[in-house]
């Protein structure tokens, strides 16, 4: 599979990455090469093999439903750029 310039722009937008227009051709090339490598695996016969959901052959452990956390708001908010009335403040998201 070969990516187009537009695919790279779309991926960058979804990941909220700012990229230089000048760098796009090399991204197109590198990402296409990675996909080509992955595509080679398509040749393997996986008939009857259960898809793996996790590399470890283990089962999720469950936690009892107990409240174990206490309020540490002031501590966490020390690293927030801006807070008010206990809220984290962020740039406006809707007009």
């Amino acid at each position: 599979m070969t990516l187009k310039k537009q695919d790279v722009e779309n991926i960058a937008h979804l990941a909220r990455l700012a990229i230089n227009q000048a760098d796009i051709p090399s991204y197109v090339q590198n990402l296409s090469d990675i996909l080509a490598l992955v595509e080679q695996m398509g040749a393997i016969d996986t008939e009857g093999v259960t898809p793996m959901a996790h590399p470890l052959d283990a089962v999720q452990r469950l936690r009892p439903d107990i409240v174990s956390e206490s309020n540490q708001r002031d501590y966490f908010q020390q690293i927030a750029p801006q807070t008010e009335a206990g809220l984290y403040l962020v740039p406006k998201v809707i007009e």
Binding site: I66, V67, R73, F76, G86
Partner: peptide
């Protein structure tokens, strides 16, 4: 209607002061 969150031990009680039930 659990007491704690799905992936953490923070309380799910409604109406608490903002961000007092949001853990790491």
């Amino acid at each position: 209607a659990t007491k704690s969150k799905i992936f953490s031990g923070a309380s799910t009680a409604y109406g608490a002061e903002a961000n007092t039930q949001a853990c790491a």
